[in-house]
Computed example of a mutant assay.
Amino acid sequence: MHRKLLPLALMYANDGEPIEGRTRLQKMVFLMQKELKQRDQSGVVGLEYDFIPYDYGPFSKELYDDLDAMIDQEFVEDTEEPLHSGKVKYIYEIEDDGEDLVDSEAETWDDVDAIMQLAQEIKEKYNDVLLSELIEYVYSEYPEYAEKSVY
Score class of each variant (00 low, 15 high):
residue 99 E to W: 03
residue 76 V to E: 01
residue 65 D to V: 08
residue 113 D to W: 11
residue 95 E to K: 15
residue 51 F to Y: 08
residue 74 E to S: 15
residue 39 R to E: 15
residue 91 I to Q: 04
residue 71 I to S: 08
residue 109 W to Q: 12
residue 66 D to V: 07
residue 29 V to C: 02
residue 111 D to Q: 13
residue 57 G to Y: 00
residue 110 D to K: 09
residue 35 E to F: 01
residue 96 D to E: 12
residue 74 E to L: 11
residue 31 L to S: 05
residue 52 I to K: 11
residue 62 E to N: 14
residue 47 L to A: 07
residue 89 K to D: 10
residue 48 E to C: 07
residue 100 D to V: 04
residue 71 I to Y: 11
residue 67 L to F: 08
residue 47 L to V: 07
residue 78 D to I: 13
residue 119 A to R: 07
residue 49 Y to G: 00
residue 88 V to G: 03
residue 24 R to V: 08
residue 30 F to W: 02
residue 54 Y to F: 13
residue 119 A to V: 03
residue 66 D to C: 11
residue 67 L to H: 08
residue 32 M to T: 02
residue 118 L to H: 05
residue 80 E to A: 15
residue 63 L to N: 03
residue 106 A to G: 08
residue 64 Y to Q: 09
residue 103 D to A: 15
residue 30 F to V: 00
residue 42 S to V: 14
residue 96 D to T: 14
residue 93 E to R: 15
residue 89 K to P: 09
residue 49 Y to D: 01
residue 119 A to W: 00
residue 71 I to G: 07
residue 102 V to R: 01
residue 99 E to C: 05
residue 94 I to Y: 05
residue 87 K to D: 15
residue 78 D to Y: 12
residue 24 R to H: 04
residue 26 Q to Y: 06
residue 52 I to W: 12
residue 29 V to S: 00
residue 108 T to S: 14
residue 119 A to F: 05
residue 40 D to V: 10
residue 65 D to K: 00
residue 38 Q to L: 09
residue 92 Y to S: 10
residue 37 K to C: 08
residue 122 I to Y: 03
residue 68 D to C: 09
residue 98 G to Y: 04
residue 78 D to E: 13
residue 28 M to W: 02
residue 48 E to I: 12
residue 87 K to C: 02
residue 126 Y to I: 02
residue 58 P to A: 00
residue 57 G to R: 01
residue 86 G to I: 09
residue 81 E to G: 06
residue 110 D to S: 11
residue 110 D to F: 07
residue 123 K to D: 09
residue 56 Y to L: 09
residue 31 L to P: 00
residue 51 F to I: 01
residue 85 S to H: 15
residue 109 W to N: 15
residue 24 R to S: 01
residue 88 V to C: 00
residue 123 K to T: 02
residue 51 F to L: 06
residue 48 E to W: 04
residue 83 L to D: 13
residue 62 E to W: 06
residue 98 G to L: 01
residue 114 A to P: 10
residue 25 L to G: 11
residue 36 L to M: 03
residue 90 Y to P: 08
